[in-house]
Design a protein around this nucleic acid. Structure first.
Length: 875
RNA sequence: GGGCGAUUAGCUCAGUUGGCUAGAGCACCUCGUUUACACCGAGGGGGUCGUAGGUUCGACUCCUACAUCGCCCACCA
């Protein structure tokens, strides 16, 4: 007999349980050649972030996978870490400085970075403790940070390797420039915003042409037309002087297929320095470029009176001036998409600048005797199934993105991050690339060396994540044993940002795939499908707040059940509360059991031959076996929602509603109760680790649940005959309860029941006790068969007939109506079935077992029909 | 412009290679202090499965269009 609290209070237990797990070493797998390994690299949250639902759901899903595999006997490693998130973090610190009226330039690079480190150190601890709150069973002894010693070394090593392979080059190229961040952005770091803008029609020498950016006219060097456009055929290749606000300037007319003759006037002004398309056109035709916008988004000195203005100011002025000069034909309203910075939403200025790039179309990887580009190799590993993406439909998205990949700009003009490992000699201009800072110039021995001031794109280091965290470039035991990792689990929103780059960097860098499977989860949304956004706090659910109120287990379940890979999930508080109720239900099922169990029951090992006694035992044991089978299969297929739902239904609908209820009478069998419960706790543990571990402590086991063995399906423990019988019992009880309610028989009232049970007579006789108790029967008579009773409720099925002779309590009209309704129902069913069975097509084409089933059902329906018709004849 | 997803009860969603008269949770209605749990129990109402065709003996499930909503990608100035 145990004393257990009436309700489960999560916050009383969670922190101490987590501590016990961590201290037990269960999170820290060993390199063990006798065991298979299972590895997940945790997508590193930003070091300065705080836990949001996105993290919470990823942690829940990954923890489920890891705990499951750990219980199955794998050496299961879940490697945690944090990302320095260069631009994001630097922005945060700069913002803090701005409040003190300072800029990063006031501090200088060295002191500014000290400031950032200080900030990161404290906020990293915040996110780490929040990861623990979710119950994440990750190995903190192997925790990494993208900017720590080892990873920085990995970054420099990879950069050097790529440089030597000619994969990294420096070039003047047009880039996405964020004037606010003062940095370049990769193509996929650019977002688009719908804006209502103007389309300006300019009188442009012999042309009229449309543009959204009249200020870039100052940088125009060409006009492009479609090669087949008859209107401009004569002009191709010629040069024209164009009148402008700063005087005439010269342009060349070029023909290019990119130009859409349908749009505007069919002629495009070309500003190679400030437009991606124009840059490409100019390159194709050998046109020079003229740069007129600087890195602060202001007009350059070569812009006369407009010099120093922002592009927006300049646009206003220049439009005014053009109108004065009669150069403006008309201005139309125009909707288009503006490129903005994904971090700060500032308008992007495309401009030409000297940057570092990764060449994606250069064949450098030797694979099966062929030289392949990183692009080709990255596509290949997914196409040939070495890497499997779940759900599969994202393959298409991945291929499409990869195929259209341009050279990747990896330099960023910020201070926080991995500084590019390139040094320039001030004396001889030599460029030295090295893993470690050189002490002197390799060419002229000069000690006047200056490191490239730029840092690397954050995704460069995260691209190495799966192997750099395991010790690369050292050939560590961990690396050999745990890599390639098993599953990479993350949101589909960073398929390109991160997953694609890991595939690129790993297949090239160490000639391995980074992971075997990619599991993509969806976004968590509000109840009405909105994105939760920080700018609208009322739409956000704070996971930490939910944990406080409902417990981590409830939160985890609410994010896993109902979620399918790649699809978004709507989450709301009632849902979490619902799963808190479930957690309490399992708590109370255990509480009931432990109240009815002695120490000896807990101490003896379960012996099916000795301990399985009743048909009820056989029924629940069989159901448990099927549950074990289903759950294992679903876990293997990553169907976590399905697995969770089935365990939920078993726990509530079968164990609690029936087996525990049966146990309140003469069927109490502590051995089976303990056996079922223990197995159930194991199955539930990956989903709701805390409550299951707390309960486990009552079962006198040496090991903690986290280290227990996953249950195995045992087909010796299937008792299908008993299952059928027990389900008949459930049916009778439910039927009687239903009939009582319909006739408004008070729940406390004990009724008289007569059952004609046919071949089930002995079985029901055996189950007399629960039948009477659970259906509230005072006097029960069971016969094989007998006469119909008058003034009684009649429950008529092919397997049994139940009469409840309630005499004066029965309203004959009501009973007649009830029977008629059922009759209608059955007649409809009969029609469907006999229709099917008189159809030759069905009989010939359907599989025999389906035909048999329908035949059986028709027979049963007809039997019921006959009985009810007979009954109705008496009214 | 291209691609993808969703559309099932008032709400949120299941429905696994086509085969019970379509299920669950929440909400709603009726009843309830029976040996864990009111974070509970018993019972109940509620759906022409977005629309229109097609394939099939049989379609929520497969195919084709369309509609609505949402997402992603793309250099239309």
């Amino acid at each position: 007999m145990k004393e257990i609290e009436k309700a489960y209070e999560a916050k009383q237990f969670e922190d101490s349980i987590y501590k016990q797990w961590e201290e037990s070493g269960a999170f820290t797998p060993k390199v063990d050649q006798d065991k298979p390994s299972f590895t997940i690299s945790m997508p590193p949250p930003n070091a300065t972030g705080t836990l949001h639902l996105g993290h919470a759901s990823m942690l829940a899903i990954q923890d489920i996978m890891i705990r499951y595999k750990r219980m199955q006997g794998y050496s299961a490693l879940w490697l945690p870490g944090t990302d320095h998130a260069g631009i994001a973090t630097q922005n945060r610190v700069e913002k803090n400085l701005a409040e003190e009226g300072k800029s990063r330039h006031d501090l200088g690079r060295k002191d500014f970075l000290k400031e950032v480190d200080k900030f990161v150190d404290t906020s990293r601890n915040t996110i780490k403790s929040q990861i623990r709150k979710m119950g994440s069973s990750c190995d903190w002894t192997r925790e990494r940070f993208t900017l720590d010693e080892g990873l920085s070394k990995a970054v420099r090593t990879m950069f050097t390797k790529m440089y030597k392979d000619g994969l990294i080059y420096k070039g003047d190229r047009i880039v996405n420039w964020c004037p606010r961040c003062s940095s370049t952005l990769a193509d996929d770091e650019v977002e688009y915003k719908e804006v209502k803008d103007k389309l300006y029609w300019l009188k442009y020498g012999p042309f009229t042409l449309a543009t959204t950016r009249p200020e870039t006219k100052l940088g125009d060097t060409a006009v492009a037309v479609h090669p087949d456009d008859a209107r401009y055929k004569e002009m191709i290749g010629k040069k024209y002087m164009i009148p402008g606000v700063l005087g005439d300037f010269e342009i060349t007319v070029v023909a290019d297929k990119e130009v859409d003759p349908e749009f505007g006037s069919g002629a495009v002004k070309v500003t190679p320095a400030h437009s991606f398309t124009d840059f490409e056109i100019a390159k194709r035709h050998g046109i020079k470029s003229k740069s007129v916008i600087d890195e602060e988004g202001k007009m350059k000195d070569n812009c006369g009176k407009y010099a120093g203005m922002t592009t927006t100011e300049c646009r206003k002025e220049i439009v005014k001036d053009m109108e004065k000069m009669g150069l403006m034909e008309k201005i139309e309203d125009y909707d288009h998409k503006l490129s903005i910075c994904y971090r700060c939403k500032t308008t992007i200025e495309p401009l030409i600048s000297k940057q570092w790039f990764v060449a994606v179309d250069k064949p450098v990887i030797e694979h099966e005797g062929k030289m392949k580009t990183i692009k080709e190799r990255s596509i290949e590993v997914v196409r040939n199934g070495e890497i499997e993406i779940i759900p599969e439909r994202f393959n298409k998205t991945y291929f499409n993105w990869m195929e259209n990949l341009h050279d990747w700009c990896i330099s960023r003009q910020i201070w926080y991050g991995h500084q590019i490992p390139v040094w320039y000699c001030s004396d001889c201009d030599e460029e030295i690339v090295a893993e470690d800072a050189p002490s002197k110039c390799t060419k002229c021995d000069s000690k006047n060396l200056k490191q490239d001031p730029d840092t690397l794109d954050t995704w460069f280091s995260s691209g190495l994540w799966t192997f750099s965290t395991l010790g690369w470039p050292e050939e560590t035991e961990d690396l050999k044993y745990f890599h390639p990792t098993s599953v990479l689990e993350t949101g589909y929103d960073i398929l390109f940002f991160w997953i694609a780059r890991m595939i690129v960097m790993t297949t090239y860098g160490i000639n391995q795939i980074p992971f075997e499977k990619v599991y993509l989860h969806g976004l968590i949304r509000t109840r009405d499908g909105q994105k939760m956004s920080k700018s609208k706090p009322e739409t956000c659910i704070d996971p930490l707040d939910m944990i406080k109120q409902y417990g981590t287990d409830a939160l985890r379940l609410s994010m896993v059940i109902g979620a399918t890979p790649g699809n978004d999930l709507r989450l709301y508080e009632e849902k979490i509360a619902g799963y808190r109720n479930f957690v309490n239900k399992i708590w109370n099922a255990s509480r009931f059991s432990l109240m009815n169990v002695e120490d000896e029951h807990l101490e003896t090992e379960f012996d099916p031959k000795k301990h399985i006694v009743s048909k009820a035992d056989k029924w629940i044991i069989t159901k448990l076996q099927y549950l074990i089978k289903d759950t294992t299969e679903n876990m293997e297929k990553f169907h976590f929602s399905e697995a969770g739902t089935k365990i939920y239904n078993f726990t509530w609908g079968e164990l609690c509603d029936w087996y525990v209820e049966l146990s309140k009478g003469e069927h109490l069998n502590p051995h089976v109760l303990v056996y079922v419960l223990k197995n159930l706790l194991k199955l539930l543990h990956p989903f709701i680790p805390f409550v299951t571990e707390v309960l486990w402590k009552n079962f006198k086991e040496d090991k903690m649940l986290i280290e227990a063995d996953w249950p195995e399906f045992d087909k010796e423990l299937l008792f299908n005959t008993e299952v059928e019988e027990m389900e008949l019992l459930h049916q009778i009880i439910s039927d009687i309860r239903s009939a009582r309610a319909e006739h408004a028989v008070e729940p406390v009232k004990q009724v008289h029941a007569v059952i004609y049970a046919g071949k089930h007579k002995d079985f029901l006789e055996e189950k007399r006790e629960p039948l009477m108790r659970m259906a509230r029967i005072g006097e029960l008579e069971i016969f094989e068969k007998g006469e119909k009773l008058d003034r009684a409720i009649a429950l008529l099925t092919p397997h049994y007939e139940v009469y409840l002779p309630l005499h004066e309590l029965i309203d004959p009209d009501k009973e007649k109506k009830r029977l008629e309704k059922e009759l209608d129902n059955l007649k409809g069913f009969e029609k469907t079935l006999s229709g099917k069975l008189s159809n030759d097509g069905f009989l010939n084409s359907a599989p025999p077992e389906v035909v048999d089933k329908e035949k059986r059902r028709l027979k049963e329906t007809q039997e019921s029909l006959k009985k009810i018709e007979g009954e109705l004849a008496h009214f």
